[in-house]
């Protein structure tokens, strides 16, 4: 049986502070941080780069290398709906909602990148 050494009041205060600090850390960095809802998207193609706000519902035709990609915007989200490419990966990416999300049609050279107004884009950089 391991016998715990006697502790003083200061030890207990240190342990309490440590536990309090730790709970605060978990609360602040794990639970409170929600994903940033994207506010606008930058759509780029070989012929244009345009910025669209995501609160305006609309359909857009974006001309790419192969033809027109169709993009749908609906209350804070955006997706590819039609594309002249073969594999339709861009359409399968589905709705994009979070700042930093990205979808692209490589054959047609059209891409969508989502941003929020703080300019938050990347989750992390490692090198």
């Amino acid at each position: 049986m391991i016998q715990l050494p006697p502790t003083t009041l200061a030890d207990k205060i240190i342990l309490l502070l440590a536990l309090g600090f730790l709970s605060w850390l978990y609360w602040t960095y794990w639970f409170k941080t929600s994903h940033n809802q994207a506010e606008y998207a930058i759509i780029s193609s070989p012929y244009q780069t345009k910025r669209v706000e995501l609160y305006i519902p609309q359909h857009l035709l974006i001309q790419g290398r192969l033809g027109n990609s169709r993009v749908e915007i609906q209350s804070g989200k955006i997706r590819f709906t039609h594309s002249p490419c073969r594999n339709k990966y861009c359409i399968h990416s589905g709705w994009l909602t979070t700042s930093g999300e990205f979808a692209a049609c490589l054959p047609n050279q059209v891409s969508i990148q989502l941003y929020d107004h703080q300019g938050n884009l990347l989750d992390a950089v490692s090198y």
């Binding site: 050494p5 502790t7 003083t8 009041l9 440590a18």
Partner: peptide
């Protein structure tokens, strides 16, 4: 900092936890 605590201060447990953090 901990070595200047008044009274009995803390034991090795307190030193260990606080210094690790």
């Amino acid at each position: 900092g901990l070595s200047y605590l008044p009274g009995r201060g803390c034991t090795a447990i307190g030193y260990g936890v606080a210094s690790a953090i």
